[in-house]
């Protein structure tokens, strides 16, 4: 399930107009079977990257391959492998929810209509209602249901919860996580809300100003970084793998990338960091060079362990176990 790549970007770049590069020098290998979060501020190039990944955009330079083959979005087979939920989860105006399901059914050979109907029933979304009169959360659920019923191998979601209220966000993510647990599915979703991703993702890609700042398995990233706290000092030159330093009146806080188990200097107290702190620290780095780890990259991720920890439905967790 893991090991092979779902998406591989090589030297990918996209330029709008003459000189505005929305994305540059993007080389990534996204592992199959993972839930991959794409993080970045607004305008960081997340939507561009996602649309390049599914062929809605053509790269200015570089290549995209999906499941080991060049992207073929002009063939039905290539299209069938990908499910996409666009940012505003568009649905046809005037269509009922049932119409949307029939739409999916007639546009996709592998469409799982009974499954989609069951899912909507469980969510309490009436199929006879007009899709555009549903609440935002319900519309997002319908869009997700359509994309899932297509039975894709790769599901791409562009800011799926950005326009939803907290409750609807939670419901949406729950549906997503349950779907991932049921199928052999790789998910790539973008968000500017790190906390949303932390609960569902195995892997994170951090984009900043059109470039990849950080990428890796979330557990490994968290294990490979620590926050060193000690008496205030401006002399941080000797600290290995320094990412960011903040100085208070009496204390200095250094975020460092160091191998797991590397002993810290006795003057520093080492503490684990959360994903959000990590992301913010990398976003605050002034340089555009991808940071170098103080040691060889961490070993291969150990299977789809992380996402299980956030499965809220215990039965789903048992199925996976």
């Amino acid at each position: 399930m893991t090991g092979t790549s779902a998406l591989r970007f090589s030297g990918l770049g996209k330029r709008y107009g003459r000189r505005t590069w929305a994305l540059r020098d993007c080389s990534l290998d996204l592992p199959q079977g993972n839930v991959i979060g794409l993080v970045g501020a607004n305008g960081a190039g997340k939507t561009t990257l996602l649309q390049l990944a599914i062929g809605l955009l053509k790269p200015t330079e570089g290549t995209v391959s999906m499941f080991g083959r060049p992207l073929r979005m002009d063939s039905p087979a290539g299209l069938a492998e990908v499910g996409f939920v666009a940012q505003d989860h568009p649905l046809y105006r005037g269509f009922s929810v049932a119409d949307m399901l029939r739409y999916g059914n007639s546009m996709n050979p592998r469409f799982d209509r009974p499954g989609a109907e069951r899912r909507l029933r469980e969510l309490g979304i009436p199929t006879e209602h007009r899709a555009d009169r549903l609440s935002g959360g319900q519309q997002a659920q319908v869009a997700l249901t359509l994309a899932l019923a297509k039975q894709p191998r790769l599901l791409v979601l562009d800011e799926p919860v950005a326009s939803l209220d907290p409750l609807a966000r939670r419901e949406f993510m729950k549906t997503l996580v349950e779907a991932v647990a049921e199928a052999d599915l790789t998910v790539l979703l973008s968000s500017h809300v790190v906390t949303e991703l932390e609960r569902v993702c195995d892997h994170v890609v951090l984009l900043h100003q059109g470039r990849v700042r950080l990428t890796g398995d979330i557990d490994d990233l968290i294990a490979g970084h620590r926050m060193l706290t000690g008496p205030r000092t401006d002399d941080t030159a000797g600290v290995a793998g320094l990412i960011a330093a903040t100085h208070g009146t009496r204390h200095s806080h250094l975020l460092v990338r160091q191998p797991v188990g590397m002993p810290a200097h006795p003057r520093w107290e080492a503490n684990p960091v959360g994903l959000e702190d990590l992301v913010l620290a990398y976003l605050a780095r002034p340089d555009t060079e991808p940071p170098q780890a103080a040691s060889p990259p961490p070993p291969e991720p150990a299977g789809p362990g992380r996402r299980l920890s956030i499965v809220t439905d215990p039965s789903a967790a048992e199925r996976q176990a």
Partner: peptide, 12 residues
């Protein structure tokens, strides 16, 4: 925006 929906179904 429904073109994004239409162009990502399994129909060329």
């Amino acid at each position: 925006g429904t073109w994004r929906l239409a162009f990502t179904q399994s129909v060329t």
